[in-house]
């Protein structure tokens, strides 16, 4: 390998700041006058939301606002879109239930976002979140992929019969069948796929600033694709017109693909001004 010029091994220029604690990840940033968002999440895998009582939380120390899915809908904040469209083998588009940033009417997994508390400090937001009273009607859950598509299984999304989003086959089924048909010996085994999660070390984080004079929003976001985030938040979530929305991606603590997608649920509410 060459020692200089083309083909030479080069040192990464970001290593010095990462090694000395001078990296600048999203949570390292502070915005003047910032408030902090803390999300109330579902402890149930599948349940109706019968009611949410936010009065006690809203009255707690330091709380600026408590928002639910209905509040976001009333503000015209659109649901999360699916960025990848798949056509099933039957020619139908994949089934895409409405995915609100904060759940409306029903929660569909443990950790589903039910409400967000915005307060002067993170500790105040956490304390107030404990005062949000959610009345759940617990429904049977589906926790096993092997039986999830069985006819007698609990249905999670109305638009997805047998809990199937899509069927996306690859390869040449006829040729494979023929090969097995003529094989000298056929062995069969069950293959169990582990659950796979892209899980970067840096959690999701966002810090937003709103300039009421110019009506511009600057959003600092741990992101792999700030331009797409800006486009989607503008076009689908009505956050602001694109020319009034600036998305900044500082140092990112790992992404592995998941930070290409937009997570409005975690960004909307850390604005300098509500």
């Amino acid at each position: 390998m060459a020692e200089n010029g083309v083909g030479a091994s080069v040192r990464r220029k970001e290593d010095y700041r990462f090694l000395t604690g001078k990296g600048s990840y999203t949570d390292d940033l502070n915005v003047v006058g910032q408030t902090h968002a803390y999300f109330v999440r579902s402890p149930h895998a599948h349940a109706t939301i019968n009611s949410i009582d936010t009065a006690a939380a809203a009255a707690a120390d330091g709380v600026v606002a408590v928002l639910t899915g209905d509040d976001l809908a009333a503000d015209g904040i659109g649901p999360l879109i699916c960025g990848v469209n798949v056509t099933s083998d039957d020619g139908e588009p994949h089934r895409a239930p409405v995915h609100s940033a904060l759940a409306q009417g029903k929660v569909n997994y443990v950790g589903d976002h039910v409400a967000v508390v915005i307060a002067e400090t993170l500790a105040e937001a956490k304390d107030a979140a404990e005062k949000v009273e959610v009345d759940y009607g617990i429904l049977p859950a589906v926790t096993d992929t092997a039986t999830a598509a069985d006819d007698d299984q609990q249905q999670i999304h109305e638009v997805a019969p047998n809990n199937q989003c899509y069927n996306w086959p690859f390869g040449d089924k006829a040729a494979v069948d023929a090969a097995f048909e003529s094989a000298h010996k056929v062995s069969s085994l069950d293959l169990v796929n582990n659950r796979m999660v892209t899980n970067p070390m840096e959690p999701r984080a966002a810090a937003g600033e709103y300039n009421s004079g110019t009506e511009e929003i600057t959003l600092h976001l741990t992101t792999q694709n700030p331009h797409v985030h800006r486009l989607v938040m503008s076009a689908f979530n009505q956050l602001a017109p694109e020319h009034k929305l600036r998305v900044v991606g500082p140092d990112v603590g790992g992404g592995f693909g998941v930070k290409i997608f937009r997570v409005l649920r975690r960004v909307g509410c850390r604005l300098g001004l509500p």
Binding site: R11, E14, Y16, L19, T20, G23, E202, D251, G253
Partner: peptide, 26 residues
């Protein structure tokens, strides 16, 4: 760890051996 901008031997070793990428765990 670094003294007057000079990396601690362990910091230097991480730099020399590509012991980091995104830097968050570093």
């Amino acid at each position: 760890l670094a003294i007057n901008g000079e990396l601690h031997p362990m910091q230097q070793a991480f730099k020399d051996n590509h012991g980091l990428q995104c830097g968050f765990c570093t």
